[in-house]
Computed example of a mutant assay.
Amino acid sequence: MSVLTPGDWGIEALWSALQPVWPGLSVELVDEIGSTNVELTDRLRRLAVVHAGGQVPDDAVLPVLLVARRQTSGRGRLGRPWLADPDSALTASLCLPIDRADWSGLSLAVGVALANALDATGQHLGLKWPNDLCLRDASQPLGRKAGGVLIEAVNVGHRRIAVIGFGLNVRHQTVPDRPTGALTEIWPEATPPATLARVMPALLQALQRFDQQGFAPFLPAYAPLDLLSGLPVATTDAQCPAGIARGVDTDGALRVQQGERMHRIVSGEVSVRAHATELPPAPGH
Rank of each mutant, 00 (worst) to 15 (best):
L196Q: 09
F218A: 03
A221K: 11
L108Y: 01
P176A: 02
D177N: 12
L168I: 15
R70Y: 01
R273A: 08
P280K: 10
A17E: 13
T184D: 13
L183E: 06
V49C: 12
Y222G: 01
G214R: 04
A60K: 02
A101D: 12
V248D: 08
A202H: 13
V30D: 04
A117T: 06
S139R: 12
I265T: 04
M200R: 09
A216K: 02
C134Y: 14
P176R: 00
P81Y: 07
G165K: 00
S139N: 13
A68R: 00
A223G: 01
A101F: 11
Q71I: 00
Q173E: 15
P217W: 01
L29H: 06
I33K: 00
A206L: 08
H51M: 07
N169A: 00
A153K: 12
T191Y: 10
T250H: 12
A282G: 13
L108V: 01
V154T: 10
A92K: 11
V3F: 12
R69P: 07
P86R: 04
P188Q: 05
R69S: 13
W9H: 08
I33N: 02
Q258T: 10
P176V: 06
S35T: 06
I33Y: 06
S267C: 11
Q55E: 15
G105Y: 04
V154D: 01
F210S: 11
L108W: 07
R273P: 03
Q140T: 14
C134V: 15
L133T: 06
G259Y: 07
L114W: 04
P224W: 08
A206I: 07
D119G: 08
T91L: 07
A253F: 02
A17W: 05
L94S: 00
P193N: 11
A17I: 02
A52E: 15
A182T: 11
R75H: 11
L228K: 02
D99F: 12
A223F: 04
A276H: 00
A221G: 05
I151Y: 05
T5Q: 14
V233H: 05
P81I: 05
